[in-house]
Amino acid sequence: MAKKAENVIVGISIGDLNGIGAEVFLKTFDDARMLEFCTPVVFANVKVLSFIKKTLNLNVNLHGIDSLDQLLIGKVNVLNIWRDTVNIEYGVNNAEVGGYAIKSFTAAVAALKAKQIEVLVTAPINKYNIQSEEFKFPGHTDYLDQQLEGDALMLMVQDNLRIGLLTDHIPVNEVSAHLTEALIRKKVLTINKSLKQDFKINGPKIAVLGVNPHSGDNGVIGREDDDVVKPALKKLFEEGVKVFGPFSADSFFGSGQYEKYDAIVAAYHDQGLIPFKTLSFGSGVNYTAGLDGIRTSPDHGTAYEIAGKGLADNNSFKEAVYLALDIYHNREEYQVLTGNPLRIREKQEEKKYS
């Protein structure tokens, strides 16, 4: 079946099958309108997903395929990447099930690298049960950073709220040791570029939060903000990057200051994620900025406590699909506007034959 230019191939890794990943995927594409502008292909096994669909009493039609050459536009495709029988036990932390989650994820990333899919949406995994001799990464982002070109950066997105992290999945007592001028420079420049090419923002304004309470109070509560953060931001601003800070993190969101900026950079995981999840009300998206491939995911975990009960809210997963599609189209437009000759010719051909 011929592919429309606007119908994007969305690869999906299934996540932990004992969690809610399959449920939020199935609920999202139970709405046939989704297939008008994207075609999903989930990397899993059609018998397993049919079983989960039946237990949740969902009606989405699944099209099983054995290779991506068999993918049908306008269908919910399931690429069979294993033939084993998987014992689904909702809510159970199981290493074997974690192995299938990684098998799905690595196959989907390989397809993204090979341009067989155009964007990737990842369902939640359990970071504990995915560890093995073959996969020794804290999570999705670190593996993507190794496999795709660029520098991965976790960027949490909900409408105009975008929060990036200088450090992500490391212990709090190691944050200061990781903070350097070079790291701050790399992360701010990555966000600045992403705001332009992925979100169509000209001259983006970026705020950076202080590491210590009250940004160190002029060195009274730590020296990191004065000795590391401020010099890095000063150099970037002198180079034309509209970056401001460091701001005291305790009042930045409550006062509404965040609304003045196109992105906020937090020093560590919870400094950024707590206000983000408080403000986004379950509709936030985790976007891996800075890479040549597009990957998004919902902002929640496996939610074992409600798995298999039909209670999972699929809004964040649906928003992750929407954001991946928006970024895909924004990047296409950005490449044309910035003079990529290959994309200009491709766009001319599309217009010629449309």
Rank of each mutant, 00 (worst) to 15 (best):
N18W: 10
L49F: 08
K205E: 15
A152N: 09
T302S: 01
Q257T: 04
A249I: 02
P171E: 11
E332P: 00
L112V: 08
N315K: 13
V243T: 03
N315I: 11
V42S: 07
G290T: 09
S132H: 08
P213I: 00
L112I: 10
N286M: 02
Y322K: 14
F281V: 10
E133M: 04
S280R: 00
E133T: 05
V172M: 11
V48I: 15
G216K: 07
G272K: 08
A95S: 15
D159P: 00
P171Y: 10
Y322G: 01
D145P: 02
M154C: 11
S354N: 15
K260C: 06
S215G: 00
L291M: 13
A108P: 04
I201M: 04
S104V: 14
L311M: 12
K103E: 11
A249Q: 07
Y128Q: 10
S248E: 05
T167K: 07
D168N: 11
L148M: 11
K113Y: 13
S248V: 00
K3A: 12
T106V: 09
V336I: 15
V48M: 09
A303M: 05
K230Y: 09
N218Y: 13
A307G: 05
V241Y: 06
K351N: 13
K127M: 08
M154I: 13
A32N: 09
I184F: 09
R331V: 03
K187S: 05
T106R: 06
A111T: 12
G99D: 05
F199I: 03
V119N: 08
L112D: 12
R162V: 07
L179I: 15
A44N: 11
A2I: 11
A5N: 14
A123Y: 06
Q348M: 15
T28G: 02
C38H: 07
A307I: 00
G290W: 11
E6I: 01
D250W: 00
F135K: 05
V336M: 13
Q257A: 03
R343T: 13
Q335S: 14
V285P: 01
T302N: 01
Q70R: 02
G11S: 09
Q197E: 15
Q348H: 13
A263P: 02
I294D: 07
I102G: 03
R162S: 02
V220F: 11
A44E: 05
F237R: 15
M156F: 14
L325P: 00
I274F: 06
E239G: 00
P171G: 03
D69G: 11
E181Q: 15
A114V: 09
F37E: 12
